[in-house]
Design a protein around this nucleic acid. Structure first.
Length: 253
DNA sequence: AACAAAATCAACCGCTGTGCG
DNA sequence: CCGCACAGCGGTTGATTTTGT
């Protein structure tokens, strides 16, 4: 429940629905000029009759530099599938593995794919021709697999690939750099874990390809190993912190 | 060509986590 | 410690577009 703030009191009723090009321009211009300082207070000086939430969503999902539009590539779909096996419906975490893709976009893509799967009673491989092992997920903890899944989506995960640093920049070289990468090119794979020891331990365990089932079993029986779904593991910047002059966003102004 | 159904996607809603006074 | 304000996330909705009949 969004709490009412003093700043939320407006003379104009808040606009809802689709954004007009003019609104997009206003928001973009404002952020370019002043940066992001407070979503709930920005709309008014920006000349927008929108809630801060709406502005934030619009910026993060569509106006932010580096957003990639259009169809998902096979590689992107593979990445989503793999990470979804590990992270479940943590769309923002999955999005952080795909340069230029937003959590909303990935979420939508996933759900539309699932609809097809349910309808046809097929694995999602019919949508994109990913080679999927049909044996993988039976008996998996529904908390970790997706509760929407029918269990047909068994993917043998070659985990070392999952944690390759280039997962952050797996898109084609012509794509604009992902903000997170652009801001912190040194962001290492290890930063995905609470400690480098944990990372090394996992990496050594994951040198061999294995199934998600095996992974889940391992996490359950090895208390020393941090499950990737833990809060600390997920602590990585998805979006850059944006300076007041917008330079961190690559505006170059 | 017209209509219906299905698919897609942008946006909203409500909740949780976090920081700060 | 508590309450408030805000950011962020995931689920859901609804409008639009595409596809099928």
């Amino acid at each position: 429940m969004e709490k009412a703030s003093p700043h939320a009191e407006r003379k104009m009723p808040l606009r809802k629905g689709a954004w007009s090009p003019e609104e997009d321009q206003k928001l973009t211009d404002y952020i370019k000029r002043f940066g992001i300082w407070n979503w709930s207070q920005m709309p008014e000086p920006a000349g927008l009759a929108r809630s801060g939430k709406s502005c934030r969503l619009r910026w993060l999902n569509y106006l932010r530099p580096g957003i990639k539009r259009g169809n998902f590539s096979k590689e992107e779909e593979e990445t989503i599938l793999k990470w979804h096996q590990v992270l479940g419906n943590r769309w923002s975490a999955i999005a952080s593995k795909l340069a230029g893709r937003t959590d909303n976009e990935i979420k939508n893509h996933w759900h539309t794919r699932l609809k097809k799967c349910f309808k046809n009673n097929l694995a999602p491989t019919t949508v994109s021709d990913i080679d999927v092992d049909q044996n993988g997920l039976s008996g998996i903890d529904p908390k970790v697999s997706d509760d929407h899944l029918d269990g047909s989506l068994g993917i043998p995960i070659s985990v070392p690939h999952l944690f390759m640093a280039d997962d952050l920049s797996s898109s084609s070289s012509t794509d604009p750099p992902h903000p997170a990468v652009e801001k912190d090119g040194n962001q290492s794979t290890e930063e995905n874990f609470g400690s480098s020891n944990a990372f090394e331990e996992l990496q050594s365990l994951w040198e061999q390809p294995f199934s998600l089932e095996e992974y889940l079993c391992m996490v359950e029986t090895e208390p020393g190993i941090m499950a990737p779904t833990s809060a600390v593991w997920l602590q990585e910047p998805i979006y850059p912190s944006i300076s007041y002059d917008g330079t961190a966003m690559g505006f170059g102004i």
